[in-house]
Amino acid sequence: MIELDQVGRSFKVKRNVVHAVRDLSFTVSAGEFVGYLGPNGAGKSTTIKMLCGILTPTTGRVRVAGLEPARRRTTLARRIGVVFGQRTTLWWDLPLKDSFELIRHLYRVERGAFAARLAELTETLDLGGFLRTPVRQLSLGQRMRGDLAAALLHAPDVLVLDEPTIGLDVVSKNGIRDFLKRLNAERGTTVLLTTHDLGDIERLCRRVMLIDHGRLAFDGTLGDLMATAPEESSIEEVVTRLYTGGASRSGTG
């Protein structure tokens, strides 16, 4: 569903060339739930932007849902859903329901399918209480659920989440995690999730990829990840070791 083949991306910053991502290759199959980890500035956002077609890779080849994102950005947009935890894609002053209605038009979702989908999302994400509230008045947790629903109204095959649980309280986090788990299990939606919250990883991701300095530092199951460190280490300790370069940079994925 997602294929990266020796993808590199460099930026010019004041005459210096910075390699945000280099020689990155991985494949995510349909129905997988993958956690994408890495310290700040490791290249996570750059990767996500390339997956959405917002950014063209300098070298290598990207394919998402069989399409080349950089060339087929608007076609691809109908097949993937994207959520940025740091900023909303909803209309600030409009009731949530109106934002959804607009998205229906933008994505040309057929009316009947939309109604069914919205009813389902309203139930599973528990949106009923604030569908008619303007987005600016929503709490962060409510807004994030709204953003998730907005990204799924067109029933995308792939869902890309950039720090969806950032700043949320424990209850909201759990609600979102449960939802994502069900989405992946019941509908088979492929999910790629970046996060700094290792709880997300523990609860959701069978597979973990870790990127550091623009290169893939680990790719494997959560079990493999834990096995890179001495026994009884917590996931925080394991990841800290990897971020600070204390572990071998190899995985089995």
Binding site: C52, I54, T74, A77
Partner: peptide, 13 residues
Amino acid sequence: TGTLDTFLIRPVS
């Protein structure tokens, strides 16, 4: 502000 990306993820020009 980084909001240009939210325009570019939509299937509309």
